[in-house]
Simulated scan of single mutants.
Amino acid sequence: MACEINHTKEDVLSKLVSQKAYLPTELYPKMESFIQTDLPQETLNEVFHLLKKYDLAAEAEQQERNEVLKTMVKG
């Protein structure tokens, strides 16, 4: 799922904020802090795509995305 667009930290934070109501409560602040760190472009793009249309994803899909995001935050 390679993306041709490089998303800025601001893009990713904006996407995170737009999906806040749909994300698990404990995950949001961790993601917010994670995005603020010095991340490679590839990671920013991946996080953006995991958050993109999160609210429209089926519950099972959201769970899968949550696991990937949690793993990323833990490093």
Rank of each mutant, 00 (worst) to 15 (best):
C3Y: 13
H7V: 08
H49L: 08
T25N: 09
E26N: 14
Q62V: 09
A57G: 05
N6Q: 08
S14T: 15
P29W: 00
P29D: 02
E42Y: 08
I5M: 10
E46K: 14
F34H: 14
E59R: 12
V47W: 00
E32S: 12
S33A: 13
I5D: 03
L16I: 13
S14V: 03
S33F: 02
P24A: 04
L39R: 14
L56N: 07
Q36R: 15
D11L: 03
D38I: 01
A21M: 10
I35L: 10
H49T: 04
E10G: 01
E10K: 04
E61L: 06
L13Q: 15
K52Q: 12
K30W: 06
F48N: 01
E59I: 14
K52S: 13
P40L: 08
E67Y: 06
V12R: 04
P40K: 15
Q36P: 07
A2K: 14
A2Y: 11
K15L: 09
P40F: 07
E10A: 00
T37M: 12
Q63K: 15
Y22F: 12
L51Q: 05
E59W: 14
D55I: 07
T8P: 05
D38C: 06
V68P: 01
K20D: 04
Y22K: 06
H7P: 04
V12N: 03
I5S: 03
K52T: 09
T8F: 01
L39W: 10
E26F: 13
D38H: 01
S18Q: 10
K9N: 11
V12H: 00
E42A: 13
A21P: 07
E67N: 08
Q62F: 07
K52P: 08
L39E: 09
K53G: 04
K15M: 14
D38A: 13
T8C: 04
N6C: 06
L16N: 06
P40H: 09
T25W: 08
M31A: 06
S14L: 03
Q36I: 11
L56W: 07
E32K: 15
Q62S: 03
T43W: 08
Y22T: 04
P29T: 05
T43V: 15
E64C: 11
E61N: 10
E10D: 02
D38Y: 05
L27Y: 02
V17K: 09
N45D: 03
K20I: 02
A58Q: 15
Y28M: 04
V17L: 06
E64V: 15
S18E: 14
E10M: 00
M1R: 11
A21R: 12
L23S: 00
E59G: 07
H7Q: 13
D55T: 11
V68N: 04
C3R: 15
Q62D: 07
N6W: 08
H49C: 06
A2W: 03
L39H: 09
F34L: 07
E59M: 13
E46S: 09
K52E: 12
L23F: 03
T37Y: 06
Y54S: 02
E4K: 12
T37K: 15
E64I: 06
T8D: 04
E10P: 02
S14P: 00
V12C: 00
A2E: 14
V47D: 05
V68E: 05
A2I: 10
E42S: 13
